[in-house]
Design a binder for these strands. Structure first.
Lengths: 152, 152
DNA sequence: TACAGTCCGTGGACGCCATCGACCTCAGCC
DNA sequence: GGCTGAGGTCGATGGCGTCCACGGACTGTA
């Protein structure tokens, strides 16, 4: 994980579809060298995936909500997690410090679906209560922050 | 935005580096046809970007926090937004229903940096108060949900 | 029915790219 | 010194991206 690896990661966070040849030009190495480095970054778990970022409204996901979840005292956190993982609407899941153990981000098509989802969450064994906040709009999401200050 | 477009979006959300030839095989069209469709999806704003998803710890972002922001009464929301946009540590920004106008997700290297960031947020004109919750771990993030139920 | 225009696809062609193997260079270590 | 391994370059080759000409289905019009 040297400076060149960092540049590669930075470039791919900005545009995951850059060709190896283009990456090679940007970092000043040959294409096979870049190919090998990127392969190691993937194998080593640094790069987890390459994803197209899609405007959710265009694929029918019009409602975004963030839901805090309080666990039952004595609930098995792993069981709750496993139940959450099986719910595809939960796009992100953070395990939090504080009374509310989880904060999850969900996307559904309609408010009615959100209601059904909340009911389902509250029925999940180990879940004591939930608190839902609706996002009126997503200003931006997953903006990659520069890995090195622009000056260096 | 027909069924084939949906499949293309779905495939690219799963792996943004699929070649046009591979996409073509999966949806049963020729490569040029897929090339054109994907181009239109990009131009039409359906596909916003292609991003490599990176394990944050590997690039020195060890602390994740979610911060709720309450605006001053009479604050200009657009000004606050603009100020937030200039803070690279804010990876996501949602405009919320409720007393807390914004919920932002930030990533920084250390707790000390988080402290400085919170101070900076509270000093931002238009910001009345903030409430920070620290994520102990990210269970998953931005998991793409299937666009069509697996049965159809 | 005949015709023209549009949309959306296919197939062919050509240059660039991904990827493999052979080889080079340098650092560290017996 | 000489061995070894890591990590690079170079060259070759097959596949891919991308441009272009062409063709069928559909639609509106005479």
């Amino acid at each position: 994980m040297d400076a060149i690896d960092l540049s590669l990661v930075d470039l791919l966070r900005g545009n995951a579809r850059l060709s190896y040849a283009e990456l090679a030009r940007q970092v000043g190495l040959s294409a096979p060298a870049v190919h090998e480095r990127v392969g190691k970054l993937e194998a080593g778990g640094v790069i987890r995936a390459y994803r197209a970022e899609v405007e959710p409204e265009h694929i029918g996901l019009n409602v975004t909500a963030l839901i805090s979840v309080v666990e039952d005292s004595g609930a098995d956190t792993d069981d709750v997690l496993e139940a959450f993982r099986a719910i595809p609407e939960i796009e992100s899941c953070y395990f939090m410090a504080g009374v509310e153990s989880f904060l999850i981000k969900v996307r559904v098509g309609t408010i009615a679906e959100l209601e059904r989802l909340i009911v389902r969450l509250n029925r999940t064994p180990g879940v004591a209560s939930t608190r839902t906040s609706i996002a009126l709009s997503t200003k931006w999401e997953n903006r990659p922050q520069p890995l090195v200050p622009p000056s260096s």
